[in-house]
Design a protein around this nucleic acid. Sequence first.
DNA 1: TACTATGATCGATAAAATCGATTAGAAGAA
DNA 2: TTCTTCTAATCGATTTTATCGATCATAGTA
Lengths: 302, 302
Amino acid sequence: MLTFKQLTHALAVERTLHFKKAANHCAVSQSALSASIHELESQLGSPLFERNNKHVMLTSFGRVFLQRARQVVLAAEDLMAFAQAQREPLSYPLSIGVIPTIGPFLLPKVLPHVREAYPNVSLRLVEEQSHRLVQQVRDGELDTAIVALPYPLEGLHAFEFWDENFFVVMHHSEVDTDATRIRADELAVERLLLLREGHCLKDHALSACRLQMSAKQDTSLESTSLYTLVQMVAGKMGLTLVPELALEQLVTSESGLVALALAEPGPHRSLAFITRVNYVGVDGVERLRVCFREALMNAPAH
Amino acid sequence: MLTFKQLTHALAVERTLHFKKAANHCAVSQSALSASIHELESQLGSPLFERNNKHVMLTSFGRVFLQRARQVVLAAEDLMAFAQAQREPLSYPLSIGVIPTIGPFLLPKVLPHVREAYPNVSLRLVEEQSHRLVQQVRDGELDTAIVALPYPLEGLHAFEFWDENFFVVMHHSEVDTDATRIRADELAVERLLLLREGHCLKDHALSACRLQMSAKQDTSLESTSLYTLVQMVAGKMGLTLVPELALEQLVTSESGLVALALAEPGPHRSLAFITRVNYVGVDGVERLRVCFREALMNAPAH
DNA sequence: TACTATGATCGATAAAATCGATTAGAAGAA
DNA sequence: TTCTTCTAATCGATTTTATCGATCATAGTA
């Protein structure tokens, strides 16, 4: 079978046109190199070199063959160099899932920080609901995913990096208190607008209010994104619960909205990376976890 | 050191995602394949596969690495296929020197025949005088050369393929005989036009006439090509000697020239391939020799 | 003729690859 | 649970391969 060693030996002979010198370059004995060349030539069926006791000379075939062999060996060396470069943490492509109620609010805050710390990082980002992310991580379609806990993980590992509280978002005309906090039992629960079934934010928000989902809730108004949800609140169609990270983008001063901290003891959800238990890139994920955490701690408070 | 075997083993595991099946594909035992993969991964510094007793799964790194490794292995396989294709006789580039008094007359007759017999043939043709061709063959710059013998070859091998006679070419107005042959001592030697010094044809022509070179010959009229030489004859500036192969092109019916066979016992020069004594492509040259000979025998006689 | 340089070759040894058998652990069935 | 099955890792033995040092053969040189 063809080996890289044979090719590099032959290339050394091509360079030096001298078996002993080539052998030295390759750090083997002359006899070993001679055998190596013989073996290669016998595999090829044609001699690469024309040689006697005094002179070594390329054959026409050898010239053409080694020209191409050089490309192959270079490609292999490139491959090894590439592998070495990959060992630098987070320099290989990483596919990350993220749930829709985290992605648009978290990533703009942390990705610049990540790119600064790991300039070679290359992330493929996928936005899906938690249950699909869990499946994709399990199947190896994703290296990791960012989800909100608590969530049934069924044997996956979780690397938490942030806890956050929920805020009640209302139209300012509906606020009848000067306090910055509000208790769940003060809420007009019947006007609560939530995300469509399947978004974990819905469950987390309800649980933050110590509420069970009300069966008589008007599901036709359940939204698919926090953005439209907040637009509905701005249209005085009700009130909603928004995680802290999203406040900055969703509740601007000119929106006519007011955000009140939920008084129930929090925090109410926790952001985490999830991976397979024996995922080999845990090192990279752990680095991401630290990096995300630092970025969030340094981010301007709302 | 990286080996092709490791790469092909890893690629087999990538395809099957199963060590035993991959081992079967590679015709080795599972333990050997397992060791091979381990060795490769240790050289790379990163695992290619994430595996436990039940499942084998590509890592992100493995995906990217094997993508590139596949290219390298394919390139190597191409290289071997290329080498095999070269084993087909005369399918590799062959550089051939030829002297100017043979090339233009011989090659048009034989090359079509060669290309028919060896469709993959690829010839690089170089036209030089004998002494330069001999040197270039010795230096390996040429695989072989076509020269006219006798010529001092100094250790090169000669593969003769054709003998030819010389013809005296004169203007028809200067011919005073009806015979088709002429003896050297009937020639107006003082009007003999020959090629410039260095062309072996000059020596061969003189020796065909049993002549030594005359010192008082008008060297200013020595030509550099048979074409101009014959043009001079057509201008009644003298007569010359032309090898048989060249007659067809040089002495056409409308040129006003007459060619008379030289009566001296011939043939007077012999065409041959020359090679280094241990040139490895002798097989190809021998095939060319046979091919040339056949082409010339089938060529229409002058 | 003797000397030098050089690639091929040989025999011994060292290194590796490979095998078969076994182990350990996970998944699924009873 | 407990048993069975499946699978990759591991181990020890063996075979194969690679390598070395020494020697040989030979072309070129003095």
